[in-house]
């Protein structure tokens, strides 16, 4: 069980990671750390969405609840993503971020 100080330290680390995604690289021998919504979008969703495969999902005010459901269940051509791939806390943040996101120039829907 983490005590209060560790919990606070972890929260601090998470905040720092959120503030500086550029240094969030994976270290040798360590499992992947929690990623920011921006990183998950760049390294997973964004390969399909706004590119050649899926519809645009940014800047549409898509409700976070729907985003979460679709990520976990997949939809037609979209595969599902398991909690081991996009962690529950990552998905919470990602879905809220997608809902509030602005449209991006240069993205095209399919």
């Amino acid at each position: 069980m983490p005590d209060k100080t560790t919990a606070l330290a972890i929260a601090g680390v998470t905040l720092m990671a959120l503030a500086a995604p550029a240094i969030a690289g994976q270290k040798l021998g360590e499992a992947q750390a929690i990623r920011t919504p921006e990183t998950i979008y760049a390294k997973t969703c964004g390969y399909c969405h706004g590119r050649n495969v899926g519809p645009i999902i940014l800047g549409r005010g898509l409700p976070a609840e729907s985003v979460k459901y679709i990520v976990r269940h997949g939809q037609n051509g979209m595969p599902a993503f398991r909690p081991t791939e996009v962690k529950p806390e990552e998905l919470e943040a990602l879905a809220a971020w997608v809902e509030k996101s602005e449209a991006r120039k240069g993205e095209h829907g399919q």
Binding site: Y47, C48, R51, N52, V53, Q75, N76, G77, P79, Q110
Partner: peptide
């Protein structure tokens, strides 16, 4: 290099998948 473009195949016909 990394991409997922070929998943577009899944949308060839109707709702696809």
């Amino acid at each position: 290099g990394l991409n997922l473009d070929e998943i577009g195949l899944l949308r060839w016909r109707g709702a696809g998948g």
